[in-house]
Design a protein around this nucleic acid. Structure first.
Lengths: 192, 192
DNA sequence: GACAAAGTGGACCGCTGGTCCATATATTAA
DNA sequence: TTAATATATGGACCAGCGGTCCACTTTGTC
């Protein structure tokens, strides 16, 4: 049933992803157009759309690549990130990790947000990475405090990572401050 | 020094603002282009840019119009919104009011965000309304708990209003849930 | 080596925010 | 009322965007 991706196609997919990465490292995200990515990858614009469907799809794929390791650690790594530790501890550990990730990929996140808003393209809830993160945070909160609105609180906590004045701080190296505040929030909430 | 705005200019300014309002009420925000606003107002596109400088400027003016009443109440209205009540109470009252406002103006906020991201235009910190809100929230937190990172917490709380999965809930009539969570967060934080 | 399936690239489309400036209009002073 | 001046106006125009399309090339299979 499953036909494998052709060799040249796979090569181009990689070239495109690496070119996008490179451009996002050196330019403000709204200047990294699909056309520029294609040019930098030595590929036609049509190819990029063929492979990734849309600008959002391209950005999502990049995010997925980087999120995979963290997801693995959460699912089956050692505590406190992986299973085993008490939920409050796991939650703080996860938020810390997510924060590091958001800091390192601030440009990419901004570009993804930009792409999402520009067209009538989907809610954040259609991004599988966000869904996984939200599910995880949500479950940990519910485990510690079954009486609160865990899903909504998870949105608030995760929203922080995407919010503009805060992502600016992250890029400026202030992530410890943000981590401290998030930990405060979590402790304030989870203490019955 | 101050030359008053010409009568026809003032009339057009109003026409443009009202037309934008109307379009935002009935269309997804990214479809409300400056050109369509101009057409609906019976005015040339150039005029809109002349009056408001940019798409962001137009949206900002609309937000300012609506935020003015709340600002007045906060500055000199009766408690708990205005001065006089204990800070935790004022804070919850303000967040409630801001939430109502964000709910009613969800389309406008989204359009403003969209405009901000599309061009290399400014941080949220350049929006005077955000600055006022942040200053207010920040001061209340600092008053109740001088030992915490009030400015950053204020960003987290206010960020909630702009965050996508949450603003979707607001539009769906779930604002009481959001209000409850915010109140929880505030109480969890401000209780030493 | 032949044939079908998959991949490719760049011209093209509709649309955007923003600029420009010759022209029209309101205001003020005479 | 008129003349002079500052201001406002509108729409053609621009560069750029995300996305589509399809004649053509490349790859994998038997």
């Amino acid at each position: 049933m499953e036909r494998r991706e052709r060799a040249d196609a796979a090569r181009n997919r990689q070239a495109i992803l690496r070119a996008a990465e490179e451009l996002l490292r050196g330019n403000p995200p709204e200047q990294v157009s699909v056309e520029r990515v294609a040019a930098a990858a030595g590929v036609g614009k049509g190819t990029v759309f063929h492979r990734f469907g849309s600008r959002v799809g391209l950005m999502q794929e990049l995010m997925a690549e980087r999120a995979r390791a963290l997801e693995e650690e959460v699912r089956q790594g050692p505590p406190p990130l992986g299973p085993g530790a008490p939920p409050a501890e796991r939650l703080v550990a996860f938020l810390d990790a997510a924060l590091v990730m958001a800091t390192r990929n601030a440009g990419l996140i901004a570009a993804h947000e930009h792409a999402r808003l520009t067209n009538r393209n989907g809610s954040r809830l259609e991004n599988p990475i966000y869904l996984f993160w939200h599910g995880h945070v949500s479950a940990l909160i519910a485990e510690a405090r079954p009486d609160v609105d865990a899903g909504l609180i998870a949105h608030v906590l995760l929203g922080t990572l995407h919010t503009e004045p805060i992502s600016t701080l992250l890029r400026a190296g202030e992530s410890p401050r943000v981590a401290a505040v998030l930990a405060d929030l979590v402790h304030g909430l989870l203490r019955s």
